[in-house]
Computed example of a mutant assay.
Amino acid sequence: MIDELYSARILGLAANMPHAGRLATPGGTGVRVAKLCGSKAVVDVSLDDDGRIQDFAQDVKACALGQAAAGVLGAAVIGATVDEVEQAREAMLAMLKAGGAGPEGRFEGLRALKLVADYPARHASTMVAIEATLDAVKQALARKSPDTRTSLAGAA
């Protein structure tokens, strides 16, 4: 079963890390660490006038499973809203902990990690990138004052 977990598909996703690095001037930054294994994700985002992810960078130091999740996330995250990221996180948690089907839509690729459900010690490392992304987006939204959001929306 462990060989299936580290399939060629998972290893391929782990090797392809879209948007690796950091943003020079992020609107928000999220950092998550899986305490059990030390997997860590640092995510920077900037948002457009509508609150969608406009720019994204991730610095992920994780096992193959955490890197695979970050690879899928990085390939799909540009243009996502906070609601889409939240829904993906909730669907991932349900998939890992309660037999759920997994994320739909732009983040459906995360379903490739369904077998991780059988390995609870790997859940946290699989979640670090999406959790850090959600934190970064929420921070970026909080930094936009209501006055700024109104004036930006009027300019569009």
Rank of each mutant, 00 (worst) to 15 (best):
M1D: 14
I2R: 12
S7G: 14
A8K: 15
R9I: 14
R9V: 10
L13P: 06
A15R: 13
M17N: 10
A20N: 06
G21E: 01
G21Q: 01
G21V: 01
L23E: 03
A24N: 13
A24S: 15
T25W: 13
P26V: 04
G27D: 07
G27H: 01
G30H: 02
G30K: 01
G30T: 03
G30S: 05
V33A: 07
V33I: 14
A34R: 02
A34F: 03
K35I: 12
L36F: 13
L36W: 07
C37E: 02
G38H: 00
S39I: 11
V42R: 09
V43F: 00
V45W: 00
V45M: 00
S46C: 05
L47W: 11
D50I: 01
G51W: 09
G51H: 13
I53F: 06
Q54H: 11
D55F: 02
A57G: 08
V60F: 05
A62H: 02
C63D: 08
C63F: 15
C63L: 11
A64Y: 00
L65G: 04
A68I: 04
A69P: 09
A70T: 01
A70K: 01
A70E: 01
G71V: 06
V72S: 00
V72K: 00
G74E: 06
G74V: 03
G79E: 07
D83H: 05
E84A: 06
V85E: 04
Q87E: 08
A88E: 05
L93T: 08
M95S: 04
M95D: 04
M95G: 05
K97H: 11
A98E: 12
G100S: 07
A101G: 11
R106G: 08
F107S: 04
E108G: 12
E108T: 11
G109N: 02
R111H: 03
K114V: 13
L115H: 12
A117Y: 10
A117M: 11
A117H: 12
P120N: 03
P120E: 04
T126D: 03
T126R: 00
V128R: 03
A129C: 12
I130N: 06
L134F: 11
D135W: 02
V137W: 03
V137S: 06
V137K: 02
L141C: 08
K144T: 09
S145Q: 12
S145I: 07
P146R: 05
P146C: 06
D147H: 13
A153Y: 03
G154S: 14
A155W: 02
A156F: 06
A156M: 08
